[in-house]
Design a protein around this nucleic acid. Structure first.
Length: 679
DNA sequence: AGCACGCCGACT
DNA sequence: GTCGGCGTGCTC
């Protein structure tokens, strides 16, 4: 039997911006997505077939390289399917990231090595015709009229062509999950699959429980960071085969293959953890929208605090927009008030009114949360006599003092050192701490309220396994207590007896130069405030600040999130900032000096100007807000344009030359499309 | 990313 | 004279 010669385009997991050509002799073309082993320079590499076509009869005599044959075919069938590969290639172009790195970073780690799938795991791949799923658990809540109405709208929209993504803006506790469940349930009888993306808060145990309870024994695959490589691969293969009908996971789960995918749900659409902040910097929400569009399936994004991008898309009718404004069971919204800290001598970081409110709440047998987004005891250790501050040796930041461990810790690089007994400069033995951290807050609250139970929840107090669960169950016992915590407490948890939230130290965000800081603060405040007053008890939220007259803070407190966000959008429009303009951030870092990083970006900037980038606004190069981190000097160049295409064309041209930009070897550099983090 | 090649400083 | 530093180039 004569075999046919094929030319394959192969992606390899290296920072190459092209595919490589290999030859292969076989009876039939290898399917797209098949893993192969290929010769690569002096080494071998795993590779993935992107295309296969019949090789020309005669070799091109002046080809710039010789085409080598693949060494081996690793699997009997393709792993990512054709649709997923198309999405990944689109993402590689959009994010200007090397295609092989994009593709392989989307695969489970176990598939990045040149090792064939074991026969045991191959069995998981055998495409199962999904059996008619058991009907969902009938133990369901009755929908409220508002929820019913909302569900009805969404179902109508989903029947319309062309489709639009749907933004579900529902206040905390309004029952967004109920809507998700009822949209998902009808899909299973037809053997369909659904993909649910959640933020990384321990994979939202309550959401997971809710799903498990509602859908009974419908096969579910969970993909989160706690999984071992083996378990992750298994879950992935079950989704790939069609056997797992509910696929629920964090950011990277957006790359799970699902042949019968019929709906994508993005929970907490506004959440920053949906954007990868290293390497291939994709946004899972945006890729989900693209994926749904490619498959022509519905996509639903839920949140209590929509991103400005999503709100703008709703305003301009690119998204459908549904609202849930009522909490079932209670009618009262929490009472929000701003508290000026300036006239008072703070005790434990709290104003007399806040302390009084805490005392009264404890007396009623209810719970309080004091929210402070800074862990440790004190953010500064300094010498009052000569002014020395404990700085990190590796970063341009002050170190945080942790009392329990009696150590200085850098929250940026993790470096630790023992607390000095004297000032290293003037030998003064009286070193002083300054500022508030959750550790100090816990201690001072305990001293102020000696009879109260004080529970602290932050990264430091929950690092041991089971510790977080223990603390959460203490809170859920509903005994009166004071909860002290960071970010970790902002979302996903439901504490029925919590009726007072005190938020302290938000001044940093109000004064920040980062144009996204206020949006994030607004989202955080609303999310934290949403913890107060569940069930039948009214909630109260006290916002301590030394900027009580900040107009946007008033907007938020007085009129709520939507007018606040509209105001922010007006500002963004005026300055042509996203979503009214498009941005890309080029970062460079050097171990040698700031100069090196800035020089490199200066070359980048010149190249852009010389190329078609004349219409691109350039801000920088400038040192990054965090100038030095983990021994690397960091600089950035921010690019902006009102035309997305113009920006992307300029970047594309720039990258043609990226391989020979001067200084490229001594700096580490990266491109961030649609950046949301500027530090 | 890895790996080789190449061109200058301080070693037996 | 050569060992090895890392700046540069290449992988079908």
């Amino acid at each position: 039997m004569s075999q046919t010669a094929y030319t394959l385009q192969i992606a390899v997991p290296r920072p190459l911006r092209t595919l490589l050509s290999y030859s292969h002799y076989a009876d039939a073309a290898l399917p797209v997505g098949t893993r192969v082993l290929v010769p690569f320079g002096k080494q071998q590499s795993v590779g993935l077939v992107i295309s296969a076509e019949r090789a020309p009869e005669t070799d091109n005599p002046d080809a710039p390289f010789t085409i080598k044959p693949v060494d081996a075919v690793l699997d009997a069938m393709p792993l990512p399917d054709a649709h997923l590969l198309e999405l990944l290639q689109w993402a590689a172009r959009y994010y200007h990231h090397p295609v092989g790195e994009v593709i392989f970073s989307a695969l489970p780690v176990a598939l990045r090595k040149p090792k064939p799938l074991s026969t045991r795991l191959q069995k998981l791949l055998v495409s199962s015709t999904p059996t008619a799923a058991t009907s969902p658990n009938p133990a369901r809540l009755q929908l409220t009229d508002e929820q019913q109405q909302c569900l009805h709208y969404i179902q109508q929209w989903n029947a319309q062509i062309p489709r639009r993504p749907i933004l579900l803006h529902g206040i905390t506790g309004s029952g967004k999950t109920e809507i998700y469940l009822r949209l998902i349930a009808p899909l299973f009888a037809a053997g369909k699959q659904v993909l649910v993306i959640v933020p990384e808060i321990g994979l939202t145990p309550q959401l997971l429980l809710r799903f498990a309870h509602f859908f009974g024994d419908t096969p579910m695959a969970c993909l989160h960071s706690g999984l071992s490589d083996g378990d992750r691969l298994k879950a992935w293969l079950q989704a790939r085969s069609g056997a797992a009908q509910i696929i629920i996971g964090t950011r990277s789960a957006i790359f799970t293959p699902a042949p019968h995918l019929a709906l994508i749900v993005i929970d907490e659409e506004h959440d920053a953890s949906l954007k990868q902040q290293e390497g291939f910097r994709y946004h899972a929400r945006d890729l989900a929208i693209k994926r749904a569009q490619m498959l022509d399936i519905p996509i639903l994004m839920g949140t209590a605090t929509p991103s400005l991008e999503a709100l703008y898309n709703a305003q301009t009718s690119r998204f459908h927009y549904a609202r849930l404004e009522r909490r079932p069971g209670t009618t009262r919204k929490p009472d929000l008030q701003i508290q000026d800290t300036r006239p008072f001598e703070l005790q434990a970081g709290l104003t007399p009114q806040s302390l009084q409110a805490i005392r009264a709440t404890l007396a009623r047998g209810e719970q309080i949360m004091v929210f402070l987004n800074r862990r440790g005891f004190a953010p500064t250790l300094f010498c009052p006599s000569c002014g020395w501050h404990a700085n990190c040796d590796h970063c341009s930041v002050k170190m945080t003092w942790h009392a329990r461990r009696n150590r200085l810790v850098c929250h940026h690089c993790g470096a630790e050192q023992t607390t000095p007994l004297h000032c290293p400069v003037c030998k003064n033995p009286q070193l002083t701490t300054q500022g508030q951290g959750t550790e100090r807050l816990e201690l001072t609250l305990q001293t102020t309220f000696p009879d109260a139970l004080v529970v602290r929840i932050d990264r430091d107090s929950t690092s041991r396994k089971g510790q977080l669960e223990d603390k959460l169950s203490t809170v859920r016992s509903n005994d009166p207590l004071i909860l002290v915590g960071t970010q970790m407490l902002a979302k996903g948890h439901d504490f029925p007896n919590l009726t007072l939230v005190v938020i302290i130290d938000i001044d940093q965000s109000l004064l920040s130069t980062d144009y996204r800081a206020l949006e994030r603060l607004g989202q955080l405040l609303v999310q934290v405030a949403g913890r107060a007053g569940r069930a039948d008890k009214p909630g109260r939220v006290i916002l301590q600040t030394s900027q009580p007259d900040h107009p946007l803070l008033h907007q938020l407190v007085g009129h709520g999130y939507t007018p606040f966000a509209r105001q922010l959008l007006e500002d963004r429009k005026r300055w042509h900032l996203p979503p009214f303009g498009y941005q890309a951030l080029i970062r460079a870092s050097s171990t040698a000096s700031m100069e090196k990083a800035l020089d490199f970006l200066e070359h980048v900037s010149q190249r852009l100007l010389a190329a078609d980038g004349a219409g691109i606004q350039r801000l920088g190069p400038i040192p990054a807000p965090l100038e030095k981190r983990a021994n690397r000097y960091r600089a950035q160049l921010l690019l902006g344009s009102q035309q997305r295409a113009a920006l992307h064309n300029a970047l594309h041209q720039l990258l043609q030359h990226a391989a020979n930009l001067p200084g490229r070897s001594s700096v580490r550099w990266s491109i961030d499309i649609d950046p949301i983090e500027f530090s």
